[in-house]
Design a protein around this nucleic acid. Sequence first.
DNA 1: TGATGTGAATAACTTCACAGCG
DNA 2: CGCTGTGAAGTTATTCACATCA
Lengths: 213, 213
Amino acid sequence: MEPKTPKTSETVVRRLTDYLRCLKHAQIQGKIYLKSTEMAIGCGHNPSIIRKDLAQFGALGLKGTGYNIIELIDNLNKILGLTKARDVILIGAGNLGTAMIKYPGFSSVNFNFIAAFDNDEKKIGQFIGITPILSLNELNNFIEKQNIEIVILSVPASETLKIVESLNDDYIKGVLNFTSEILPARKNNMFIHNIDLAKELEVISFCMKNCLS
Amino acid sequence: MEPKTPKTSETVVRRLTDYLRCLKHAQIQGKIYLKSTEMAIGCGHNPSIIRKDLAQFGALGLKGTGYNIIELIDNLNKILGLTKARDVILIGAGNLGTAMIKYPGFSSVNFNFIAAFDNDEKKIGQFIGITPILSLNELNNFIEKQNIEIVILSVPASETLKIVESLNDDYIKGVLNFTSEILPARKNNMFIHNIDLAKELEVISFCMKNCLS
DNA sequence: TGATGTGAATAACTTCACAGCG
DNA sequence: CGCTGTGAAGTTATTCACATCA
């Protein structure tokens, strides 16, 4: 059964990804069904909202039993658009970029890092794992030839804006920005997500000072 | 004037960090005052909520003029608990950990990475910048001697739980978890923040599929 | 019986609109 | 006059409580 996709807020989408992880975890442990209460413990959300989130995509659970894990993983993958593999590229092959390519959590997501780009002559021609490092000069050429839609940015903050503006937005639809330069959420046709690592330190600092949560 | 600190939700705290970045940006450009409408453009929040967020800490703005940038930065630093420098340690000196220590965005936050820990003999004794890499065996000893309160975790997922459980929570109050293993938000006395890099890819995947905002 | 799915109730958050002050 | 600060209104999100179905 194809899941319905009603208008869904980002809040809900973020929870869906938590459910997905929780389900995979349970699957590895050999479970077949998972109840909303069990998911709640695993991912820190209220059982009620878990049921509500899932219910909006059609009746995915079995009353009295819970949710079939394989089926629900499959449905969530469809809902999140993770069923077909996507080619993504990395811009900036420094420590952070290298870490991203090697990050084991990405393997579950269906994203292939097919190339990295850098302007450091020493890096160009090298590989990160199996991913080749190419020259930034070839960037848009590559994007157009390979039909790339998603870019992961980890260059120095000072270069961020220039690079984003140079991206061909007939092709690029999503940018994950790991630089410390904050960009608007939409630019031309591109969705931009800013991931500010310093923010998390600031939040934890506040939590510790004020005993939040 | 010491800012009041009423009960503040994490939602608000996250916005405060956005204001802070926005203010610093304006400060570099030589501005003295910033209006809520200008901040709104810079950080993507509604001017109204910016004023409301700030107002709850006392009257921080000048009617007709806006907010004094230096003063407000100072106040936000106090509110977020960023005024006094904190020593933090890194556990796991791989690519991601190395990237964290070198991440330029962290310099604005008052966090000093005073040591990294790893169990790779080849790394122990080396330095990341000026940060020494020590043996994991010395971890709790070091924590107790140096009175460490914050830990940044970037070890393989399989080791995460074991390490977190071994931490002495008489000292450690906050954990930033960059591994792909998800931990509960509270464990013993520790605040834990899970930063799941794969989640951002999943969210952007959904956005692209459904044209969410 | 024991779980989901769901309307109703509650709570949290955001926007509006404007009084009031510099 | 132009901004902030803020009550009121509006919106979104969460929890509760229970009917419903395997």
